[in-house]
């Protein structure tokens, strides 16, 4: 079976087999424990290696490419919250088992490490190619990923007490909170895309800001949670690029919005239709789910 992505053929796990990730710390092979490297610190050198088996003839047949087209492997490391990607040196694809390595020097990574193994066109064919065969440098025909937790971030939503009067809100003493979307980039980490502001001008919000374990603050928190998820739903319904069938990175805004949609319906289209028809019903459903999850 062949898979067509946006414009060219790609490979599946039956042709690219037995992908295995291995890690080392300062040159010593190490095991990840629950997806984390416990001995890691900023000054560690982290080695990432990925072994993989490919039947070259089968791959070429599946991709319908000429023999002179060359592919190369790459491992790419991205950290959250750092905005930098670090690629390995490309390794030319050969038949059979291969190992692709990336060394991450001290000080270069922190937070959560997302790793991606890519097989891409390294050198195009000199022959004209018809159909869906990959033909341009960089076209990716296989990708798979792994991740490592280096530092716990607990995935907390950034929360800040703010004077709403300073932000031009009329009658600020009555306002409660403000969910800010700092970016609508669906691949971006939800923790950096969202920012929840609590209004310091409203005296009723004081228990939530100052004493978060009192009965009144727990009631506020319950209300806040429902409103928070309701605003996420509203964003998910109107986001022009959200595709709930796509797998967004772990912890990303896309994953969060997809999760909210899947909480209330089987697909984005069905929830949109239901919301258009009776938004109150969708919100009541959401309230039941959010409150139910708490019970």
């Amino acid at each position: 079976m062949k898979y067509v992505s946006l414009g060219h053929l790609v490979l599946d796990e039956r042709i690219v087999r037995d992908v295995e990730w291995e890690f080392s710390l300062d040159g010593q092979v190490t095991r990840s424990v629950d997806g984390a490297l416990p001995e890691w610190n900023y000054f560690s050198t982290v080695g990432v290696s990925c072994t993989v088996i490919v039947d070259m003839d089968e791959a070429r047949r599946a991709l319908e490419v000429a023999n002179d087209l060359q592919f190369a492997w790459l491992v790419v490391a991205k950290c959250k919250p750092s905005p930098v990607a670090i690629p390995s040196q490309p390794i030319r694809l050969v038949d059979g088992r291969q190992e692709i390595s990336l060394t991450l020097p001290p000080g270069s990574i922190s937070g959560q490490l997302d790793l991606e193994l890519l097989l891409t066109v390294a050198s195009p064919s000199k022959f004209h190619i018809d159909g869906f065969a990959p033909s341009k440098i960089g076209q990716t025909v296989f990708r798979t990923s792994s991740k490592l937790v280096l530092e716990g971030n607990a995935g907390q939503l950034p929360l800040l007490p703010v004077s709403f009067a300073d932000h031009g809100i009329q009658h600020p003493e009555s306002s409660l909170w403000w969910l800010r979307f700092l970016t609508r980039d669906l691949e971006e980490s939800a923790n950096s895309a969202l920012w929840l502001w609590l209004n310091t001008d409203n005296p009723e919000m004081e228990p939530l800001i100052e004493q978060s374990d009192t009965t009144i603050s727990l009631i506020w928190l319950q209300f806040l949670q429902i409103d928070f998820v309701r605003q996420l739903l509203s964003e998910a319904l109107r986001h022009p690029d959200l595709d709930t069938t796509y797998t967004y990175p772990d912890g990303s805004l896309g994953e969060l919005l997809t999760g909210v949609i899947k909480l209330v319906g089987p697909s984005l289209q069905s929830v949109q239709a239901e919301h258009q028809d009776d938004p109150g019903r969708v919100e009541a459903k959401l309230q039941a789910l959010v409150n139910g999850a708490r019970l």
Partner: peptide, 13 residues
């Protein structure tokens, strides 16, 4: 870049 990776490209590419 949904289907293309820039990491393989040399500076001129």
């Amino acid at each position: 870049m949904a289907v293309l990776s820039v990491f393989i490209m040399q500076e001129s590419q």
